[in-house]
């Protein structure tokens, strides 16, 4: 009997949290796991690029021009004779960083803002959400141009600016989720236990709104990557010889009839990343939904 109690307690103590269980479930989802591994691998490559890239990022060979994949240039070269693999590796640094930083900023502000507005309600909610409406109404381009003019062109600022625009939708989604959830009796139960509002939001509301948050996040990452390409294309983002996947794709698209590899390989890099993200996102959503498959 005594030993039984001891094992019970040991079992009870060993991390019984949502995240631990989610990890156990995620581990069984091959597709999601593969997605995660690919993303990690891409990130490591991006971090190590300056040391492992086959060529310098600004090395060009105008005499060579655009060549298809070969032994020297595995993925070929562009019209300036620059190695495409090197370009994609350096471009990945920018694109992955944009995706990560801008989305994190959007997530952090959006989820907090929406959760607070939805939870507190009343006048606070009205003021917070009207602010969101005003931000929505601001022409996004003017906002970015203004930032660039005031602070000078700065890649980190670009990330923050994109994040600062993307959080608006996240805040709205989060608010409507929280408004629905806070009607539920378990929130009332948490209040009557005496939990402070911050803890209620963190422990009881956000975990139950994770499904839509994750789905929206997997949609946000590609959209910020494309947004960066768009801004760079307009000359507001990063400038050559620096590059990003978005830029490579847009240049590649211009010359795709003559030099298709210039479109195919950067496109492939982006596609693989997005696929991995989606699989990982789906897997995470399922893993965090305790009601699904407990077998």
């Amino acid at each position: 009997m005594t030993t039984e109690i001891i094992t019970d307690i040991a079992e009870a103590e060993q991390g019984s949290s949502l995240w631990h269980d989610a990890w156990l479930r995620l581990r069984k989802n091959r597709l999601a796991l593969a997605g995660g591994i690919i993303l990690v691998a891409f990130s490591i490559i991006a971090l190590l690029t300056p040391w492992i890239a086959p060529y310098a990022y600004d090395a060009q060979n105008l005499d060579l021009g655009a060549t298809p994949p070969s032994a020297q240039h595995w993925l070929g070269t562009d019209i300036f004779g620059r190695d495409l693999l090197t370009q994609i590796m350096y471009g990945g640094r920018v694109s992955l960083a944009v995706g990560l930083i801008a989305t994190s900023v959007a997530l952090l502000i959006g989820v907090t803002w929406g959760a607070v507005a939805g939870y507190v309600g009343g006048k606070v909610d009205a003021v917070m959400m009207r602010l969101v409406d005003i931000m929505y109404a601001l022409p996004f381009m003017i906002f970015i141009v203004l930032l660039m003019v005031v602070f000078g062109r700065n890649i980190l600022l670009l990330f923050l600016a994109i994040g600062a625009v993307e959080w608006l939708t996240m805040a709205r989604i989060m608010r409507s989720q929280v408004q629905q959830l806070r009607q539920q009796e378990f929130v009332e139960a948490a209040i009557s236990l005496g939990l402070p509002p911050g803890t209620i939001i963190r422990r009881h509301l956000i975990p139950n709104a994770l499904g839509p948050i994750i789905v929206y996040t997997t949609l946000t990452i590609p959209s910020v990557m494309l947004l960066e390409a768009f801004l760079s294309f307009l000359g507001l983002g990063i400038q050559p010889p620096q590059t990003s996947w978005g830029l490579l794709i847009s240049y590649g698209a211009e010359t795709m009839e003559e030099f298709p590899w210039l479109l195919i390989f950067p496109g492939l890099a982006l596609t693989i990343t997005l696929f991995s993200l989606n699989f990982l996102g789906d897997g995470l959503r399922d893993a965090l939904d305790v009601r699904r498959s407990k077998d």
Partner: peptide
């Protein structure tokens, strides 16, 4: 010092928390 038991045991428990939590 004062607590409540709710009507609907399906709504009054956080679906993402184990009994332990």
């Amino acid at each position: 010092r004062m607590q409540m038991i709710f009507q609907d045991p399906f709504a009054s428990l956080n679906p993402r928390m184990t009994v332990f939590d």
